[in-house]
């Protein structure tokens, strides 16, 4: 599904190289986690994959089902099936959550040559998905993320994911700012979306999110590279001993 090969990237305005050769493959149906210390390039990986301005890819490739992601605009990547759940979902006053969700869903359908959903069809779909995610219908009427609690913002991200039905979901520190109950709710939402034709890349500092979203593969990232890859046990090892041991081991 997602193939990242020798990806190098730097900030556009500075000469500082952040990604120094990330290589990673996430097959359909699997959940991969990326863990790593602050500044290792985890969030940058998610931004470069989703096409955020301000980064320059200097080497390497990233493809989604064979399509070159790096050549596409962010909205084209979304239509191709990529979804980034933000660490800090953005507040957009004055734009209703419902308007936003419908605009996004229909823009993607249009880009894929599918029929757009009518307001009625969409409302029905949103209500159904919101219910399974325990999202209050009132929240849908409010402007995008405005006045939402940390937990509500993250649940809104998962609701978007459920509506847009992406193939490849990248979750950027979805656990940050969440209490245990909120984290469980978000994890339940993600788990409900797991399917053989969908893959996940879960970026996190801590192992605890991975208690709720069981990964198939865990990657450790340091200094802009994947330095170690293993099974779920690798996350437990990090939790127990910190990153220092692993970093020392890989030099």
């Amino acid at each position: 599904m997602l193939k990242i090969n020798n990806l190098h990237a730097k900030l556009e305005d500075e000469d500082k190289q952040i990604l120094k050769g990330v290589t990673l493959e996430v097959p359909a149906g699997e959940v991969h986690a990326i863990m790593g210390p602050n500044g290792s390039g985890k969030s940058t990986t998610s931004y470069v994959l989703s096409g955020r301005d301000g980064y320059e890819v200097t080497e390497g490739s990233a493809t989604l089902n064979g399509q070159d992601l790096l050549e596409m605009e962010p909205e084209e990547r979304a239509a191709a099936g990529l979804f980034l759940a933000f660490q800090y979902p953005v507040e957009i006053p004055g734009v209703g959550n419902m308007t936003f969700l419908r605009t996004a869903a229909n823009a993607q359908r249009k880009a894929r040559g599918e029929d757009e959903l009518s307001a009625g069809e969409f409302l029905k779909l949103v209500r159904e998905k919101a219910k399974t995610l325990n999202i209050d219908a009132e929240m849908l009427k409010r402007p995008v993320n405005v006045g939402f609690s940390g937990g509500e913002k993250k649940r809104n991200e998962i609701l978007q994911m459920a509506l847009l039905e992406p193939k490849m979901c990248v979750l950027d520190e979805t656990d940050s700012g969440l209490d245990v109950d909120a984290m469980r709710l978000v994890a339940d939402g993600v788990n409900a979306l797991r399917s053989p034709d969908r893959a996940f890349l879960v970026i996190t500092h801590y192992q605890r999110l991975l208690d709720h979203i069981q990964p198939d593969v865990v990657h450790i990232m340091a200094d802009g590279r994947i330095v170690k890859t293993g099974g779920p046990d690798l996350a437990l090892e990090v939790e127990k001993n910190g990153y220092a041991d692993i970093l020392a081991e890989v030099g």
């Binding site: 962010p74 239509a79 936003f100 823009a107």
Partner: peptide
């Protein structure tokens, strides 16, 4: 706001439409 613009685009909203939504957001008050 570039971050908000990217947020909308990352959900599949084309750039020109995302800009319109951001302007409507600005005018909302």
């Amino acid at each position: 706001d570039e971050t908000a613009l990217f947020y909308l685009r990352s959900r599949g909203v084309p750039k020109s439409r995302a800009i319109v939504l951001m302007i409507l957001s600005f005018l909302a008050d």
